[in-house]
Simulated scan of single mutants.
Amino acid sequence: MTKKPANPNAKAALNQMKLEIANELGVPSNNMYGSNKSAYENGVLGGRVGGQMSKRLVEMGQEQLIKQYNSKNR
């Protein structure tokens, strides 16, 4: 599995989503890249933010599929 986005233009949008989710979870943006934290703390933090990003991306994909399905069945 690759870490590259399917669409290279999506990188900025994914970074924006990451910052928004981190803000909602109370993670200070100046510590997003973990220079002041241990590897364990970064792993826990990254898991929380990454998990929420995955959840929201799946929800967005489901919404798009529902819209496509509904538009074809009208």
Rank of each mutant, 00 (worst) to 15 (best):
T2A: 10
E63L: 07
N15S: 15
A12W: 02
L14M: 12
N9H: 06
R48A: 14
K11Q: 12
Y69N: 07
Q68P: 04
S54R: 15
A10N: 01
P8Y: 00
Y33D: 12
L65I: 05
L14V: 01
V49E: 03
K67W: 02
N36Q: 09
G43K: 14
R48I: 13
G34T: 09
N30W: 11
G46M: 04
K4E: 15
A39P: 05
N15Y: 12
A6E: 12
R56Y: 10
K72S: 14
G51D: 09
N23S: 06
A10C: 00
Y69I: 08
P5K: 00
A10I: 00
A13C: 04
L19F: 15
K55P: 09
M1F: 15
N73A: 06
A6F: 10
L57S: 12
K3Y: 13
V58S: 08
G46L: 04
Q16I: 01
Q52K: 15
V49Y: 08
A6S: 13
A10D: 02
N42Y: 07
K11D: 07
Y69R: 04
K37Q: 13
Y69P: 04
L65H: 05
N36R: 09
V49M: 12
K55Y: 15
K11P: 05
Q64V: 05
M60L: 09
N36M: 11
L45N: 14
S38M: 03
A22N: 02
S29T: 08
N9C: 03
N73V: 05
G34K: 07
S71Q: 15
K11G: 04
V49T: 07
N70F: 07
M53I: 14
N73I: 06
S38I: 03
Y69M: 05
N70P: 02
Y69V: 10
A13P: 04
S38T: 13
K67L: 04
R48D: 12
S71C: 14
N15L: 14
K18S: 08
E20H: 02
N42T: 15
V44M: 14
P8G: 00
N7F: 01
E63H: 03
E41I: 13
L65S: 05
G47I: 04
V44K: 13
N70V: 03
P28T: 02
P8C: 01
N7G: 00
V58G: 06
